[in-house]
Design a protein around this nucleic acid. Sequence first.
DNA 1: CTGTTAGCGCGTTCAT
DNA 2: ATGAACGCGCTAACAG
Lengths: 334, 334
Amino acid sequence: MKISRKFIAEQAGVSPTTVSDVMNRNPKARISSEVAAKVREIAEKYGYSPDQSARALVTGRTYNIGIIYRETIATVFDDPFRASILRGVEESIDENAYNLVFVSNMTDAYPSDSFRRCICGKSVDGILAFGPMSDIMVDMIHNKGIPCVFMDYLFKHRQENCVLPDNFQSTYKAAKYLIGCGCKKIWFLFGTLHFFHITNEERPAGYAAAMDEAGLKAEILEVSPRANLTKDMMLKIFAEKGFPDAIMTAGDKITMGAYLAIQQMKPEQLEKTRLIGFDDLPCLAQQKPAISAIHTNIDEIGKEAVKLLMARIENPLLPPQVHRLSTSLVIRET
Amino acid sequence: MKISRKFIAEQAGVSPTTVSDVMNRNPKARISSEVAAKVREIAEKYGYSPDQSARALVTGRTYNIGIIYRETIATVFDDPFRASILRGVEESIDENAYNLVFVSNMTDAYPSDSFRRCICGKSVDGILAFGPMSDIMVDMIHNKGIPCVFMDYLFKHRQENCVLPDNFQSTYKAAKYLIGCGCKKIWFLFGTLHFFHITNEERPAGYAAAMDEAGLKAEILEVSPRANLTKDMMLKIFAEKGFPDAIMTAGDKITMGAYLAIQQMKPEQLEKTRLIGFDDLPCLAQQKPAISAIHTNIDEIGKEAVKLLMARIENPLLPPQVHRLSTSLVIRET
DNA sequence: CTGTTAGCGCGTTCAT
DNA sequence: ATGAACGCGCTAACAG
């Protein structure tokens, strides 16, 4: 015998409608607390819960949120930045209301089968995505009318819901600060991990704007997104060009690379060349001397993304919104 | 206008049945390649994919696999052991066939709402679980007839599908090896992270059996599952009791703790006291001297679990099976 | 290959 | 609070 609504209704001596009303706590149906208790008891006894597929078919709600990412889940969690975002997501999603479905999308150009199942097949109520994503896929999402929020990403050519740090203002202010401290020769280091990532443009741009304003020459050096490669490159650059008054970076792997290079070449120089990282991964504060940084509450990205998404699941007509998270400049020993 | 099967049928000038047959590649229905191509083209144009809820309602297949864990996703991935298992899961699951749904289950005693939705509400075809799990929940899973495999866990009081390393044989053989090398005084260190975890019993037991056979005294010391706490404890123990000929452990956090303690007290002792870890996390091989270990292909646990699960999704009547993964003894410099 | 029929389990409405 | 009726979008079975 299948444990269906009808079965529970029979066992409890009520009608199927009543079972639904009890399970869904339908406020319109006034049900005596006795009957409700009885139904709950029977449901509990048989481990009944409404069939999600049947329910979704009629309500259009699956109670699933899709997390779209490239590569593998392990890769996502190996990246402290994205891991932190997901920590925020998990914290602020009401786990009693939604489940997280991980949808890999290896081929950026073309949607995977699992993407099609989830999106075109409507098996999620909303999407949280790590950018970038091809237009063809974003369009599919819109065509299906599924709310979607991009985390740590911004589209330049289209309006989407995006949550990301206020990159420009952050480096602008940090550079201003350094200039105010009397630094003249300030370098900015960046490394391109994701080619079309907006971060690659905004972070250097804020720095450059501040330098321009101060009549200083902006020197933006491309290194590597990996710490050890950056270190090697910086060893050469320092040898050739000497040390600047200050160094800013576009990310903390680069920060660590530069830090290690200085430490290896001339430890005492760490007292002179100011170093300000970006993101403020935990390792920065643990160094000696402790590294200064533009601090981002990374998990806030996840939390804000959930907020935006929930609002749009409730009301799909809400217009796209870009949410910028403010950062704070944390000056330590460098 | 909704993009339904009917709509696609009209656009392609065929019957709804044909659309289903094409989408599902139904072998019984012989469809001309022309018609099939036409249907696919239209489906592609409108981004059509069968509604998963409707499909699941009638087929009973959701194409979702539930991953059940305690605490948070981040906690799971912070644990290199479980992260590695999931890497294996993700690799061997055909990502084009199944999605992974993460179902947290904070309260062990009582199923969470999301657990109820997924299990009682049948929104997953199968379950991969990190043990332990309360009987009440395991029973619910069985009552719903959903195949379930436990990873790195074994129930003593009930028969379930479980995949775990061959703990007893592993420590038995390693101890035999040490005894064969002439070691007399061999300690076994364990720390209890999960109280009712079978690993806590099997690993010491294999060691003890080998010691007994050789007529040697088994010395099983309880330390901490954390590296730094274990280190502190071992510093005291070494100071009191001196160094043994060899040390075996129940896990690599403990291994590292013991290693660091010896290194701090008397580095040259690392040449004398043999140390054999368990699991062989990457950090062991990177030490100097490199630490020996019982090597487990952790990701194989995930892969085997997927195999077992898939077989049971195909044929739910398959009996519960415990799959033991063999390990290998890797002798390095300790 | 088509069209028809019959559910899948549930939420919703409405008259009772 | 009930019970009947309807439909969600789809699959499966079968007669054409």
